[in-house]
Computed example of a mutant assay.
Amino acid sequence: MTDQQPPLSAVHLPWFVSTEHQTDVLLIATGIFLVLFVFTIGVLLLRLHHLPEHIAGKEQKVQYQVVAVLGLLAMFTHENLFWIAGLLLAMVDLPDFTGLLGRIANSVQRISFRKGPEARRIRDVDRGLLGFRQPTKRFRLLFNLPLKERDCHYG
């Protein structure tokens, strides 16, 4: 009496177990899933990390640059405080002082170059309202005004 074993092919194996010369389907599927999962998580984390820069991109250039530097510091130093500071700075609308100061400078320049009866009237009103005395010689030299009152073209 010989013990006869059934051939190997007749034994039922689960689908994920590969035989000697077959491709391991589970290993390949798991590898593809792992690569895609790591790539997706990396993209999502980088997108989250650069969220303050995307928010500040709509604002002023200086604010965007400060937020970008804070984001880089947070990424390279692994300090979350920099990221939080950048996010808060990106969400705050800072007033545009450069535009305001530029408009003030342009207005002052236009006023300084103004001549004629309108300029005389403005100067007379300013002197009367503010109680200005006649400018001293030092003041006239400093601001390049005529030294004698008769040389003035006030009116």
Rank of each mutant, 00 (worst) to 15 (best):
M1H: 10
T2G: 09
T2H: 13
Q5W: 14
P7D: 08
V11G: 00
H12T: 14
L13W: 09
P14T: 05
W15M: 07
V17A: 03
V17P: 02
S18W: 04
S18R: 15
T19K: 15
E20M: 11
E20T: 05
V25L: 08
V25Y: 11
L26V: 06
L27D: 14
L27E: 15
I28N: 10
T30F: 08
I32F: 13
I32M: 11
F33W: 05
L34W: 08
V35D: 09
L36P: 08
L36V: 10
V38I: 15
F39P: 02
T40W: 14
I41M: 14
I41G: 04
L44R: 12
L44I: 12
L45M: 04
R47H: 07
R47L: 12
R47C: 03
L48P: 03
L48Y: 11
H49D: 03
P52G: 01
P52F: 01
E53T: 09
E53V: 13
E53M: 10
H54M: 06
G57H: 14
E59D: 13
E59I: 06
E59T: 14
Q60R: 12
Q60K: 02
K61E: 14
K61T: 14
K61C: 07
Q63L: 04
Q63G: 01
Q65E: 08
V66T: 10
A68W: 07
A68Y: 13
G71V: 02
L72H: 05
A74I: 00
A74W: 02
M75I: 05
T77H: 02
N80Q: 10
N80Y: 10
F82D: 00
W83G: 01
W83P: 01
I84L: 08
A85G: 13
G86Y: 00
L88P: 08
M91Y: 10
D93H: 09
D93S: 07
L100D: 05
L101N: 15
L101H: 06
L101A: 12
A105L: 13
N106K: 15
V108F: 02
F113L: 11
A119C: 06
A119S: 05
R120K: 12
R121N: 11
R121W: 06
R121P: 02
I122T: 10
I122Q: 13
R123K: 06
D124V: 06
D124Y: 05
D124K: 08
D124P: 00
V125K: 02
G128K: 01
G128F: 00
L129P: 00
L129A: 06
L130F: 03
G131K: 01
G131S: 07
F132N: 00
Q134W: 11
P135W: 00
T136V: 09
T136L: 11
R140D: 01
L142E: 07
N144E: 11
N144I: 13
L145H: 09
P146C: 10
L147K: 12
E149P: 04
E149D: 12
E149S: 15
D151H: 06
C152P: 01
H153P: 01
Y154E: 09
G155Y: 05
